[in-house]
Computed example of a mutant assay.
Amino acid sequence: MRVALFVTCVNDAVYPSTGVATVRLLERLGVEVDFPQGQTCCGQPQFNTGYRAETVPLAHRMADVFDGYDHVVTPSGSCAAMVRNHYPAMGDDQAAALAPRMYELTEFLVDVLGVTDVGAYFPHSVTYHPSCHGLRLIGLGDRPRRLLGAVRGLDLRELPGAEECCGFGGTFAVKNPDVSAAMGRDKVRSAVSTGAEVLCGADNSCLMHIGGVLRREGDPVRPLHLAEILASTEEEPWS
């Protein structure tokens, strides 16, 4: 099977290890991964800030760049939700055509490849934060937890108030910094209470926000994208 990777802006600029982990994981499962060089932003920041007309050219570019692929995989529920939920609502056929071919990583693993045990090994205690877009807009459900539950050596711990927003919300954090920071502190307190070594999520934007609070509070919990846990094996542990 051949797929295209949509790595997203945040991963490309700040968390390239997540993109590397996604490719390593998919290739280990026998998937051929292409990385179209022309990919840019999906337009979510512009769309969420009210610049709807300015989003359309970005959506067109996305549709052009990923044309010809039956499956486009992204390690981001947020960006997947932008393409799947909002491109069709733009009333633009070219952009809408990409929507049914866009898959968040855990959806692709469970629904398309039909696997939950990806052969991962991660001997650490982990708690999982379900980000809002993945949870509410594209309905990831228990897919991430099923994948984590099959990882050898992993001790999965319940996160109190797991479905509560971490406070990032993209431009929400910029427009409402005090509220955003307070929500982030609530999420961090919940994570620390589990005693877990790692706070796992499927969106690095949320993990960036939570990680900032963790650093400021001096808490030892490490934020880490799900792809990096799933890419780890006993022979090739993820650092």
Rank of each mutant, 00 (worst) to 15 (best):
P36A: 10
V65Y: 13
H86I: 01
A80N: 09
L26A: 06
R28G: 15
A63P: 05
S76K: 09
A97L: 14
M62L: 14
M62K: 01
P88A: 13
E27K: 05
L26C: 06
Q94R: 09
G50K: 03
M82Y: 00
G30I: 14
G30W: 11
L113Q: 01
C42G: 00
C79Y: 06
V72K: 02
C42M: 04
V73N: 10
T18Q: 10
D34Y: 06
H60C: 01
L109R: 00
Q39M: 09
V31A: 00
Y51F: 15
H71W: 09
H86A: 04
N85F: 12
D64I: 07
T74V: 15
N48M: 11
V83M: 09
G43F: 03
Q37R: 10
V112F: 07
L25C: 10
A59R: 01
Q37F: 10
F47V: 00
V72L: 05
D70P: 00
A99D: 12
T106K: 00
G50I: 04
D67Q: 09
A80E: 11
V31G: 01
D92Q: 04
P45I: 15
G77D: 08
G91R: 11
G50S: 04
G77R: 02
V73I: 15
L105F: 13
L58P: 01
D70Q: 12
G50E: 05
Q44E: 08
N85V: 15
V83N: 01
T55C: 01
R101H: 14
D93W: 07
D93F: 03
A63S: 13
R101S: 06
Q37N: 08
L98N: 00
L98I: 05
Q46I: 06
A99I: 04
V33C: 02
P75T: 10
